[in-house]
Write a protein that binds this DNA or RNA. Structure first.
Length: 338
DNA sequence: TTCCGACAGTGGGGTCGCAAT
DNA sequence: ATTGCGACCCCACTATCGGAA
């Protein structure tokens, strides 16, 4: 075993530094920056990966031992024992990899399903949950005693492919070298989350970087504003808008949106909402939001979000603005569940 | 001078575990 | 038995500040 690094050209070998196992974990994982960029036809060289909807996991193999860490540095060995086992069974005994743990439902990565595993550490609880996980690795930070983070991404990926043996629950994240725009369109059609675009020649930086771009499929639509919450702390105007849509002759609650505002929009929204105040909630069914203020459902807000949760609430909602061109009565749910 | 990255603060849904009711 | 809370996960965004470009 070993000798993978001997195949590197001299100028890349000079980028290597010695690394103690786990030393890179004192730093943080490299994070992607949210981007609207869609044109990747320029001179710069990018690698595209499917955006996986799970939790980040860094794994360290040091001799006989394998250990996994969350993004914040928490040890998760008891949470994902089958991943630790898969890493401990690898022929190579000296590496650090970066990747994402996911759970599948109906062929798609499903964060909600993974959540049923995330907090569990007792083997019998994990067994009872019945949620199989897969560890998609996409980067190699350390190998054969060397810190690889200064090497270009393509080289790290090439080494990663050869360094590990891929059997469930361990997989290498597939990537493509071109066609980013087409790939993103196809991903969104399938109802996936989006893509991560990574600069092919970039090093691994333990922070949020523009060398990794998060390209998200947007699932925005209009919602009727039926109430709001009071601001807290240094916040002004309001905390969040309570929003919904029409279905079956009533206004159905779809959750809250509490980000995307600046000071001006918070204050002007509050002024308009105060003119619409009513004592009773306009939503059908009971909405349990302590301290909520209710308004006549006359304002229509444009809201972006990633997906509907199982309970029919919005995940990762953000406010984009008011739609004065839309009638509240026309606002319905635009996508089916899931 | 302008831009970028890091941090703090405020907001979201959901899960689990634990304490209070 | 139910409810509430905090701690984690995922995340959104604004505002600010200091240093790099």
């Amino acid at each position: 075993m070993g000798g993978l690094l001997d195949s590197l050209p001299g100028e890349q070998r000079r980028l290597l530094r010695t690394a103690r196992p786990g030393a890179e974990l004192a730093a943080r994982p490299m994070l992607a920056t949210l981007s609207d960029r869609r044109d990747f036809s320029g001179d710069d060289d990018w690698v595209f990966e499917r955006k996986l909807d799970g939790v980040r996991l860094l794994a360290v193999r040091d001799g006989e031992r394998a250990t996994v860490f969350s993004r914040s540095g928490r040890r998760l060995d008891d949470t994902y024992p089958e991943i630790v086992r898969a890493l401990a069974d690898q022929p190579r005994t000296d590496f650090t990899v970066d990747g994402e743990v996911v759970a599948f439902r109906r062929g798609r990565t499903d964060f909600g399903r993974l959540q049923q595993r995330m907090g569990l550490t007792r083997p019998e609880d994990i067994e009872a949950a019945g949620v199989a996980v897969t560890y998609y690795v996409f980067d190699l930070l350390r190998l054969e005693g060397a810190d690889l983070t200064r090497l270009p991404l393509r080289t790290r990926k090439s080494l990663l492919r050869r360094a590990l043996t891929y059997r469930p629950p361990l997989r290498m994240t597939p990537h493509r070298n071109e066609g980013g725009a087409e790939l993103l369109a196809a991903s969104c059609d399938r109802g996936w989350e989006g893509l991560i675009a990574k600069r092919a020649d970039a090093d691994y930086q333990p922070r949020r970087s523009r060398d990794w771009l998060k390209l998200k499929c947007s699932r925005g639509q209009e919602f009727v504003v039926g109430g709001f919450t009071e601001p807290a702390g240094s916040r002004v105007g309001l905390g969040a808008l309570l929003i919904g849509y029409h279905q079956g002759g009533q206004l159905r609650y779809a959750g809250k949106v509490g980000t995307g505002f600046d000071r001006r929009s918070l204050l002007s929204l509050r002024a308009r909402l105060d003119g619409l105040r009513v004592p009773d909630q306009p939503f059908g069914g009971r909405v349990a939001e302590p301290g909520a203020r209710w308004v006549r459902p006359e304002l229509v807000a444009q809201v972006d979000f990633t997906e509907w949760t199982r309970d029919g609430m919005l995940r990762h909602p953000r406010y984009l603005g008011l739609r004065d061109d839309k009638k509240p009565g026309d606002v319905v749910r635009e996508r089916a569940a899931g």
